[in-house]
């Protein structure tokens, strides 16, 4: 782009240390770009760096983070005997800490089935196949409470999704979507989050569009938002017909976008405006 002289408003220099019940947690919000991105960007930044001071501060203490309410609700749901035969998540998996690491490595290809699986897909499989319940809506409140709880178990771990082997074909597909200029505005994810990160599109400070912070508590919606819900909003803003959450397209895109953040910390439940 011919933008001589336009000084981008850089991501704020800051570090994120969270006061949690179990002590302080250091989160890596700035990291060297993964190998495959080296020719495009040097450094990857969590979306946290692009938000206002007040929004960033809400994430420094779990007492202030409005997303923690949903984590607590997720824990109640985890322990509840909701299955048709009285099963609970806890009955089979013990504590939620058994899920540590999952958020950091999903979406991933399931070794047994070869299917690309997000956290939501795994939860859904247990809810329907193992508990005999109707599927939880992908973006419904039970799913998002559970997603919040499970993501928290990986807080502070580096995002580390596999992009090779069985994942390669999904990753390629996600990459193609990332660079496709959709809609009547003919914009790709890269148009905003790669070419113009750091600049303002009207009042919005464009981040790199990373998903390491997801799910996020979005102040504007006063609720939890999953990565693919965010994609819906971004694609809609290009005057395009969006894909649906849990579509093959958005799952592949989530894998690709997650891989662009390999090395950043999972934030558990982050706070965005």
């Amino acid at each position: 782009l011919a933008l001589a002289g336009a000084v981008a408003a850089d991501p704020v220099e800051d570090t994120l240390v969270v006061e949690a019940e179990e002590g302080t947690v250091d989160l890596v919000t700035t990291a060297p770009a993964p190998e495959f991105l080296k020719d495009t960007v040097d450094t990857i930044y969590s979306g946290w760096h692009y938000r206002e001071d007040e929004t960033r501060d809400l994430q420094r203490d779990d007492f202030d983070n409005p997303g923690m309410v949903f984590v607590d609700r997720g824990l109640d749901l985890w322990n509840a005997t909701i299955g048709t035969d009285g099963q609970s998540c806890a009955g089979c998996h013990e504590g939620p800490e058994s899920m540590a690491g999952l958020r950091a490595t999903t979406p991933r290809v399931d070794a047994k089935t070869g299917a690309l699986m997000t956290v939501e897909n795994y939860v859904d499989a247990c809810v329907t196949d193992r508990m005999g319940l109707e599927a939880w809506g992908w973006t419904g409140s039970q799913m998002k409470d559970m997603l919040a709880l499970i993501s928290m178990q990986s807080r502070g771990m580096p995002v580390n999704v596999a992009i090779d082997g069985a994942a390669a074909s999904f990753w390629e597909k996600g990459k193609e979507l990332y660079y496709t200029r959709f809609g009547q505005l003919e914009m790709s994810c890269a148009s905003c989050h790669e070419d113009n990160q750091g600049r303002y599109i009207r009042a919005d400070h464009l981040s790199q569009g990373q998903v390491n912070g997801f799910p996020v508590y979005r102040l504007k919606d006063a609720g939890i938002l999953s990565a693919q819900q965010r994609f819906v909003g971004c694609v809609r803003d290009t005057r395009a017909e969006t894909f649906k959450p849990n579509s093959d397209e958005f799952k592949a895109l989530e894998l690709y976008v997650a891989s662009r953040g390999n090395g950043l910390s999972v934030e558990g439940v982050s706070v965005r405006h």
Partner: peptide, 17 residues
């Protein structure tokens, strides 16, 4: 001022075709 040649154009900002 263009009406053709888009990939998955939507009806305004509805997110729908």
């Amino acid at each position: 001022y263009k009406t053709e040649g888009f990939i998955r154009p939507g009806g305004g900002y509805t997110g729908k075709a």
